[in-house]
Design a protein around this nucleic acid. Structure first.
Length: 443
RNA sequence: UCCUCGAUAGCUCAGCGGUAGAGCAUCCGGCUGUUAACCGGAGGGUCGUAGGUUCGAAUCCUACUCGGGGAGCCA
């Protein structure tokens, strides 16, 4: 973009540049449109930390080089005032990004007063109440950029492998898995629920399009209050026709490894802002270690945990298992009784199902849950009866087995947990722009 | 739902039975390389709410409200 500005009382042409591209404009006079992040000043020089969404850069206003009026305007700037600055891009070894802006003119777009989030520390409650402003900070910006890159990586990985994106409904007539608590709402004069998984619909889509994936929000009305839980979160749910459990695992580990590589190459600045230990991420190369549920139980018992075959893992168990690995680890073949009704039993051992959870390292918990699905109509009908599911509500799902049933597998990847892990965050609430938490619906 | 911790200035916290404090932010002044800048000054409070104990409660007790961390459940 080219703008006309008044510069030293002459009309001149100045190009507007995004901060992330400044290093391509060394020696040029350009304009930045953005906000004042912070300011430090002495009597004769002012340092303006500028941001425009694409990055941060320091602008220097030297009293000797600008008019009294411009210097006074720079000194009077407040945190988060919006402004346009014109200046010369210079290389400077003292600058974290390697470049600085020698400012010649400052135009105040809006002078802010009493911006609530000061450069000092704040509590979680205060920051979440001001989430709409908190996302302006460098750390939150870095997280949201990485989230976007992770989404981009997932899409390109799947798109390159002949997957088609299919969007399942968000308003549904009933539960997909029948276990977790659903958000209830009204669908005119009928009951409806917000989706907690698009999986069953994706199975229908896979029979139509072969390889499909959904990417959308899911809602769980559970009173979970931990660093790994959100009430509203986003999942990627691929579903693949003519695909076995084993083949699905290969896709899963390749996908996760691809995401990590993409973020390492495209988000170096953001990872640095977050202070992420890159060596931990660089180790994430496929294939990932796999252990069976049986082996996991033995491992836990050896570690002194009181757990018996047939019980599900709790958070402490997952943490204990993950400690033995520096990469994500698959736990395969859980007991049939503790898993969802649609999972296919292992033909060699019907007491376990062809499923796997992928546990992220460093205690970030389960990031993927997947399985091969039951393709035999009689077995599926039997499962419906065992779980006392209403057959009429799932008639369409039964049809998928009745008409051209094939072996198929799929999985769900939790976006926020993946973002938290890659960013090295303490809590998933920072991985989504406006987190919905147990006791928080504002802003 | 359960366990646990907390609520004092705009923010982060100290004070834990005897007149309400600090740092930062804000405002005023100073400073030519700051990067959580620094130095000097000023303003700023029904100590979450309601009861109780006490000569006296921010402080001790009870209830409630709101929130943090964790468990279960899950991604």
């Amino acid at each position: 973009m080219i703008c006309m500005i008044t510069f030293w009382r002459r009309k001149v042409m100045v190009q507007t540049v995004f901060i992330k591209h400044l290093s391509e404009h060394i020696g040029e006079t350009i304009m930045i449109q953005g906000w004042l992040h912070t300011k430090r000043s002495s009597g004769k020089v002012a340092f303006l930390q500028l941001r425009d969404g694409t990055g941060f850069v320091q602008g220097v206003v030297t009293k000797a080089e600008v008019s009294e009026e411009i210097f006074a305007r720079a000194i009077a700037l407040t945190q988060e005032s919006s402004l346009r600055v014109t200046g010369t891009v210079v290389k400077d070894e003292r600058a974290p990004s390697g470049v600085e802006l020698q400012i010649q003119d400052v135009e105040v777009v809006y002078l802010t007063h009493d911006y609530p989030i000061t450069p000092k520390e704040h509590g979680v409650d205060f920051l979440l109440d001001h989430r709409h402003l908190w996302i302006r900070g460098p750390r939150q910006r870095a997280i949201l950029k990485i989230r976007a890159e992770i989404i981009k990586a997932i899409r390109s990985f799947l798109d390159e492998r002949d997957f088609t994106q299919v969007d399942p409904p968000i308003l549904t007539p009933s539960s997909c898995e029948g276990t977790t608590t659903l958000f209830h709402t009204q669908y005119f004069d009928r009951d409806a629920y917000l989706t907690q998984s698009g999986q069953l619909y994706m199975e229908a889509a896979a029979m139509a399009l072969g390889r499909v994936y959904s990417f959308g929000p899911t809602f769980r009305a559970e009173k979970s209050k931990t660093r790994r839980h959100l009430i509203e979160f986003w999942m990627i749910e691929p579903e693949m026709a003519y695909t076995t459990h084993e083949e699905s695992l290969v896709i899963q580990e390749q996908l996760v490894a691809y995401i990590i590589q993409h973020v390492l190459t495209h988000c170096a600045i953001e990872l640095k802002t977050l202070g992420r230990d890159l060596t931990k991420l660089q180790q994430v190369i496929a294939p990932f270690p796999r252990i069976s549920y049986d082996e996991a139980i033995t491992l836990l018992q050896k570690d002194g945990h009181e757990i018996q075959w047939g019980e599900d893992f709790g958070a402490p168990h997952e943490a204990a298992i993950v400690e033995h690995f520096s990469r994500p680890v698959f736990i395969e073949r859980f007991p049939t009784t503790i898993k969802a009704f649609y999972m296919k039993p292992d033909p060699a051992r019907p007491e376990v199902v062809l499923c796997a959870d992928l546990l992220a390292p460093e205690g970030y918990g389960e990031i993927i849950g997947g399985s091969q699905r039951i393709d035999d109509p009689d077995l599926l009908a039997a499962r419906f009866a065992e779980h006392e599911l209403p057959e009429e509500a799932y008639a369409w799902y039964m049809d998928l087995r009745k008409y051209g049933s094939v072996p198929h597998s799929g999985f769900g990847l939790g976006l926020e947990r993946t973002v938290a892990w890659i960013c090295g965050l303490e809590h998933v609430r920072e991985t989504i722009p406006f987190p919905r938490l147990l006791y928080r619906l504002y802003p």
